[in-house]
């Protein structure tokens, strides 16, 4: 119990060193390796998850900006179209007004001409009649009886003429 043998002391030291080497090789290294590997895996997965999250966020931002762009573009197009339509509308209206005015003017002119022509016709007819009446009087010997007949005839003819004119 108390006797110390140097050989056994040496053997114990050697035993412990051998045990240390064996335990290192067969227990600590495999287990710690596995744990380190798992840690690595977890870390990489975390990093990956973070990266994909970041990517998703970026994509979302991109889409949102695209959407906003499209909206403003749509608005501007709509506005432009409205303005264009307004201009077109005004133009068409003005054209129509002008045309209508022109037509009225034309119609008025035609009416006036027609009227003038009718008056002129009537005047020339009356003149003809007067001339015819005058020539008839001159050609026939003018006695009292004749005068009366001619006067009557004239009145009759003029009355007929005015009636047909009115119609």
């Amino acid at each position: 119990m108390l006797n110390i043998s140097p050989w056994n002391l040496l053997f114990t030291v050697v035993n412990l060193l051998v045990l240390l080497a064996l335990m290192k090789k067969f227990l600590y290294k495999p287990v710690l390796n596995i744990i380190a590997k798992r840690q690595e895996l977890i870390d990489s997965q975390f990093a990956q998850a973070q990266a994909s999250q970041e990517e998703a966020k970026q994509l979302k931002e991109q889409y949102e900006s695209c959407l906003a762009d499209a909206k403003t573009e749509q608005e501007s197009i709509l506005k432009e179209a409205k303005v264009q339509a307004g201009i077109e509308y005004d133009k068409i209206l003005a054209d129509a007004n002008e045309k209508a005015a022109q037509m009225i003017e034309d119609a008025k002119k035609v009416g006036l001409e027609e009227k003038e022509k009718a008056v002129k016709d009537a005047e020339s007819e009356i003149a003809k009649l007067a001339v015819a009446a005058a020539s008839k009087i001159v050609s026939q010997a003018s006695d009292e009886k004749n005068d009366y007949v001619i006067y009557e005839e004239f009145l009759k003819k003029a009355g007929e003429k005015s009636e047909t004119d009115r119609n």
């Binding site: 119990m1 108390l2 006797n3 110390i4 043998s5 056994n8 002391l9 114990t12 030291v13 412990l16």
Partner: peptide, 9 residues
Amino acid sequence: KDLTVTIAL
């Protein structure tokens, strides 16, 4: 329990 071992340690 052997003194040799504890001395070695």
